[in-house]
């Protein structure tokens, strides 16, 4: 759980940095070159398959964990008050994960599936023709419902990582009175706030632009 989760966190950083090129005001040239590079570079392709494996492992492991933990307390309490002893995020990881899973399915269908198997529009950059991922993304993000789904999902990722990032280190036994608070801050400010906010900014930007 921890290894797969933390791997996905590094993936998230790389994914964000690449996608920020959407904000370049060049009609999508940089983004399309980047997306062609990501789709064709053999090293990237290998890492992508490792990434798919980790996502699947994380999902299966996560649901298995949730099922086992439910079994450990077949009869629940009539009255429970955990608000003073643990964070909401930490108690709702499986719920948050399920929201992320729904998002992932929509997300992969819209972009990954289209890029691989769909009928993509084509654009020409410096005499060469490229699949025009940029216009597909812009079109998708222009729809308010699609943008709204992304924003909600980024909240889910934010809350998932608010607990998950630091939790991954604890699971691996990495805990130190000096460094653990720093890890917790990194989890909160970078992974729970900044990264989801930047991801959410993309659909919001294109949606508002289109209004």
């Amino acid at each position: 759980m921890a290894l797969s989760g933390l791997f996905l966190c590094t993936f998230l950083v790389v994914h964000l940095l690449g996608n920020l090129q959407l904000f370049q005001n060049d009609g999508g040239v940089a983004f399309n070159l980047y997306s062609a590079f990501m789709a064709n570079n053999p090293l990237i392709k290998t890492i992508a398959y490792v990434n798919y494996a980790f996502i699947l492992l994380h999902i299966i492991d996560g649901f298995y964990l949730a099922a086992q933990n439910r079994k450990a307390r077949p009869q629940g309490y009539a009255k429970v008050d955990q608000s003073k002893s643990s964070s909401w995020s930490s108690r709702n990881m499986a719920l948050l994960g399920t929201i992320i899973l729904v998002f992932l399915i929509v997300h992969m269908k819209s972009f990954w599936f289209e890029m691989k198997f769909g009928n993509m529009p084509v654009t020409t950059i410096e005499g060469q023709s490229y699949k025009d991922m940029y216009s597909v993304v812009v079109e998708a993000f222009s729809q308010p419902w699609y943008a709204a789904l992304y924003v909600v999902s980024m909240f889910a990722i934010g809350f998932h990582l608010y607990h998950g990032f630091a939790s991954g280190f604890q699971s691996l036994g990495i805990r130190h009175h000096r460094y653990t608070p720093a890890i917790q801050n990194l989890g909160t400010f970078l992974f729970a706030i900044l990264i989801p906010a930047l991801f959410a900014a993309m659909p919001v930007y294109f949606c508002l632009k289109n209004l």
Partner: peptide, 15 residues
């Protein structure tokens, strides 16, 4: 023994 798995909620330490 059938105890559940730790997900680091931290409630134990508080209680």
């Amino acid at each position: 023994e059938g105890f559940g798995n730790c997900t680091n909620t931290g409630a134990c330490e508080v209680e």
